[in-house]
Computed example of a mutant assay.
Amino acid sequence: MKSTWNPSGAGVLCLPSGRLVRGRALRRPFPPDGPLPTYAVHLLGRQPPEVPWEAHWLRWPDFRLPADRAEARAVLAEAWNRAPVDRVEIACGGGRGRTGTALACLAVLDGVPPKEAVDFVRRHYDRRAVETPWQRGYVRRFAD
């Protein structure tokens, strides 16, 4: 059986259901004392390097929105569904804008009202998460 994250681990967001998901900046090294992900979603404009765990690349340029919104919805739903049993990691270059936006969308899937999801992620993950007005708008419309 796989295991999930330590709730007090670096970058770990506990959703209202108890699901744990880690957000991370790909430009930074892994926390030295923590486990590796078992499933990751990489939010980048270019294809990332291969990793030794299962990963999905979602084309999402910096400061923008996902290139394919239907694919983004499906990939984020998969991450949310896997979070109870896998160490799911959501990661972009800096770990704030795209990662925060994706984490806020996971919060919406978890039952947080879309208008409250950005504040939820800023309180529980990073106070500067979700960097642009169009990223905030994307989260508000994610439930539609």
Results as ranks from 00 to 15, higher is better:
residue 112 V to N: 04
residue 27 R to K: 13
residue 26 L to T: 15
residue 99 T to Q: 06
residue 61 P to L: 10
residue 105 C to K: 11
residue 31 P to Y: 14
residue 25 A to I: 13
residue 39 Y to C: 06
residue 25 A to S: 12
residue 6 N to L: 13
residue 32 P to G: 07
residue 72 A to M: 00
residue 22 R to V: 12
residue 17 S to N: 01
residue 107 A to P: 00
residue 63 F to C: 15
residue 67 A to M: 01
residue 75 V to M: 00
residue 104 A to F: 10
residue 35 P to F: 06
residue 104 A to T: 11
residue 82 R to V: 10
residue 110 D to V: 05
residue 39 Y to N: 03
residue 108 V to T: 08
residue 29 P to Q: 15
residue 93 G to Y: 07
residue 14 C to V: 14
residue 94 G to F: 14
residue 59 R to A: 05
residue 44 L to S: 01
residue 88 V to F: 11
residue 60 W to H: 08
residue 48 P to H: 08
residue 87 R to S: 02
residue 90 I to Y: 10
residue 41 V to D: 00
residue 58 L to N: 02
residue 71 E to M: 13
residue 58 L to D: 02
residue 62 D to Q: 11
residue 114 P to N: 03
residue 42 H to P: 00
residue 3 S to K: 13
residue 18 G to K: 02
residue 49 P to E: 13
residue 20 L to Q: 04
residue 19 R to M: 04
residue 36 L to K: 01
residue 51 V to L: 03
residue 61 P to I: 07
residue 39 Y to I: 14
residue 43 L to R: 01
residue 5 W to E: 07
residue 81 N to W: 01
residue 49 P to T: 15
residue 86 D to Y: 14
residue 48 P to M: 09
residue 46 R to P: 00
residue 7 P to T: 12
residue 23 G to M: 04
residue 53 W to V: 04
residue 22 R to H: 11
residue 101 T to C: 15
residue 88 V to K: 12
residue 41 V to Y: 00
residue 25 A to M: 09
residue 98 R to I: 10
residue 85 V to T: 13
residue 86 D to G: 14
residue 13 L to R: 13
residue 31 P to D: 13
residue 114 P to D: 03
residue 89 E to K: 10
residue 39 Y to A: 09
residue 22 R to N: 10
residue 28 R to M: 14
residue 104 A to N: 09
residue 34 G to Y: 10
residue 31 P to I: 15
residue 64 R to D: 07
residue 19 R to A: 13
residue 107 A to G: 09
residue 74 A to V: 01
residue 30 F to R: 03
residue 58 L to R: 00
residue 55 A to C: 09
residue 82 R to E: 05
residue 63 F to E: 15
residue 31 P to S: 15
residue 77 A to T: 04
residue 21 V to G: 14
residue 47 Q to G: 04
residue 74 A to E: 03
residue 100 G to T: 08
residue 102 A to M: 10
residue 67 A to N: 01
residue 78 E to N: 00
residue 114 P to V: 05
residue 24 R to M: 07
residue 93 G to K: 05
residue 9 G to P: 02
residue 5 W to P: 02
residue 85 V to W: 07
residue 19 R to I: 08
residue 90 I to A: 14
residue 52 P to G: 05
residue 86 D to C: 15
residue 108 V to H: 04
residue 16 P to S: 14
residue 27 R to M: 13
residue 50 E to R: 07
residue 29 P to H: 15
residue 40 A to H: 08
residue 80 W to Q: 09
residue 6 N to S: 14
residue 85 V to Q: 05
residue 21 V to R: 15
residue 13 L to H: 07
residue 7 P to H: 05
residue 109 L to E: 08
residue 78 E to W: 00
residue 88 V to A: 11
residue 33 D to R: 03
residue 42 H to T: 03
residue 103 L to C: 04
residue 77 A to C: 00
residue 58 L to Q: 01
residue 18 G to A: 12
residue 106 L to A: 09
residue 111 G to K: 08
residue 65 L to C: 10
residue 31 P to H: 12
residue 34 G to I: 14
residue 107 A to I: 06
residue 91 A to S: 11
residue 105 C to N: 11
residue 58 L to Y: 01
residue 91 A to D: 03
residue 47 Q to K: 11
residue 114 P to Q: 01
residue 14 C to G: 09
residue 93 G to T: 09
